[in-house]
Amino acid sequence: MRAPRQAVEIEFDHATKRYPGRPAPAVDDLSLSIPAGEICCLVGPSGGGKTTAMKLVNRLVDLTSGDIRIDGRSVMTLDETELRRGIGYVIQQVGLFPHMTIAENVATVPRLLGWSKAETAARVDELLDLVDLPARDYRARYASQISGGERQRVGLARALAADPPVMLMDEPFGALDPITRTRLQKELLRIQGEVRKTIIFVTHDIDEAILIGDRIAILREGGVLAQYATPEELLAHPADEFVARFVGADRGLKRLSLKRLGDLDLEPANGAVGPLLDADTTLRDALSVMLNAGARTVLVEGGDGTTRVLTLDRLTELLR
């Protein structure tokens, strides 16, 4: 097995894309840097240029001016096909090859790179297991024989096949039903915990961005960067009215959903009463429980066997 590749930094440096015959640029002077091994969500309304910005990285769209560097190397200096084989690419409609089996689909890039048969087969099995599709059951099937959610898992496995340091994902879960989507979002985070790629994840769903992203870049119409920040910063301090409106009036609640009871340093209960919750309950759910129960406190099992307490006042303080 090959040694896993080190994640790399991606840097947009005044990246601009103009299409001929159109007055406004699609991506306008975009500068941001994505630290190695982090997920950056590009979000914004349609026409915000988020997909275009992503495609500038693997040169499915070429820059008009500015530069994008992966691990310090400008994408414009690299051979297109070489560049793309080093970048995992996942799209909403997946685009599995219908005439190839699941295993052959996943093996696409390793084959292009000339891996040996044995090495490719071992890698395919490893990846199918990683995305929770038992290789024994799925290897020989065709795309028409699996569900939409399974297809996107295969799409993810195929993108990860040659262990690229960078992944581009264009609304990968946008066409899935809510339950499957939530499951795959969690799977992605679990997989990312194992593989540590630098990921650009395009979505129009701010909730998805908050859940998935280590950082979020909000683009407004005309491909202008409105704000680039961690979910916490974005929700606490939206840069302007546009961002505040985009993240939604419930941004206080969304901030609460970022933290879990177990993350907090809570006081011992000392005889306080209230509903008892798990340590992995989000603060948002804790608040909901308080409101439902008409209580001003909830209790949580501390790791050391003690019971701890979260009060409504403490929650309000946390949002300051």
């Binding site: 096909t81 084989r85 909403q92 090859f97 890039v109 292009l112 581009l168």
Partner: peptide, 14 residues
């Protein structure tokens, strides 16, 4: 299908 061609291009097929 267009998405199949896009995936092919995105993966670096000539």
């Amino acid at each position: 299908p267009p998405e199949v061609l896009e995936a092919a291009r995105g993966m670096g097929l000539t």
